[in-house]
Simulated assay, not measured.
Amino acid sequence: MTDLQRRLLAEFVGTAALVTVVVGSGIAAQQLTDDVALQLLANSTTTVFGLGVLILVFGPVSGAHFNPVVSLADWLLGRRHRTGLDLVEVCSYPIAQIAGGVCGAVLANLMFDLDAWQISDRDRITTGHLIGEIVATAGLIAVIFALARSGRAALSAAAVASYIGAAYWFTSSTSFANPAVTIGRVFSDTFAGIAPASAPGFLVAQLLGGALGLTLIVVLYPRSTAAAAGNAVVPHPTEPAAPNTSDPTTH
């Protein structure tokens, strides 16, 4: 398996697991209580812990983007210094992420004995929700690339997960902030779902939010270069490390 194939597999599995966490915890919360506030609390808390773990597990392999907006931002920031994802990677990452998002929703449905293939009828398209998505995505991009450009990307697991957990509550949209997750959640007609008619507006808002977050980072960190080789979320090697011949465990 090539290095790119390993990274795409990590993005696929990681995004699938993320959507499974989001949708599955939403289904469980909906089954356990009728209190919407408690449902959202359960959903957001589980997402915080799940996302943090997934970043730690898959970050060393692919950078743990799990998000087409993050991958696109990494590519854009790296053009000047020839760092970040290349053109092939920035086209491949979103495909793996979106496919993973859809599979993650189907898996969550199956785990709770629901129909595997569902289409949500949960309408979320309001002006407030769209503004919320712009804010949520702009903040997410700002957090990720502020850490990457200031040499603190190792803190991303805690920082990104904490931001998403907070944004569940301070944004009206409950912070999807991710096109792959948004598309995946279309395929579960449950607490965490989103109707197909609402998804395009969310996707546009996320792209706008990503552009705003990226602009803020360029202004705030004008002399810093983007993290190399897709290290936007977690630093990782793009090629397997050479064996350490001084380590007896390698012989």
Score class of each variant (00 low, 15 high):
Thr190Leu: 11
Leu207Asn: 02
Ser172Ala: 10
Gly104Gln: 06
Ala148Trp: 10
Pro68Thr: 00
Ala146Gly: 15
Leu85Pro: 11
Pro60Leu: 01
Asp123Ser: 14
Pro243Gly: 01
Arg7Tyr: 05
Ile164Trp: 11
Asn109Arg: 03
Asn231Leu: 05
Phe112Lys: 02
Met1Ala: 06
Gln118Glu: 06
Leu4Met: 09
His236Asn: 07
Pro237His: 12
Arg185Gly: 08
Arg80Gly: 01
Glu89Met: 04
Arg152Thr: 05
Asp3Pro: 09
Arg149Gly: 09
Val88His: 11
Val23Lys: 06
Leu8Pro: 13
Ala228Asn: 11
Ile183Phe: 02
Gly128Leu: 09
Gly100Asn: 02
Gly139Leu: 06
Leu56Gly: 14
Asp115Val: 06
Ala232Ser: 13
Ile55Asn: 09
Ala153Gly: 10
Ala148Gln: 09
Asp113Met: 11
Asn67Tyr: 03
Ala227Asp: 00
Ala42Asp: 12
Val22Met: 14
Ala64Arg: 11
Ala142Ser: 12
Gly24Arg: 08
Ala229Tyr: 07
Leu54Ser: 01
Gly50Arg: 00
Asn43Pro: 03
Ala211Trp: 01
Leu208Glu: 12
His65Asn: 08
Val48Pro: 09
Val90His: 08
Gly24Lys: 05
Asp247Arg: 00
Pro237Trp: 02
Trp75Asp: 07
Ile131Asn: 04
Gly139Arg: 05
Leu38Trp: 14
Ala153Val: 08
Arg80Ile: 00
Val21Lys: 04
Leu9Arg: 01
Pro248Arg: 12
Ala136Tyr: 08
Val48Gln: 08
Ser44Ile: 03
Cys91Tyr: 05
Tyr168Cys: 03
Gly14Val: 05
Phe12Met: 03
Ser25Ala: 15
Ala116Glu: 05
Phe49Ser: 12
Gly59Pro: 03
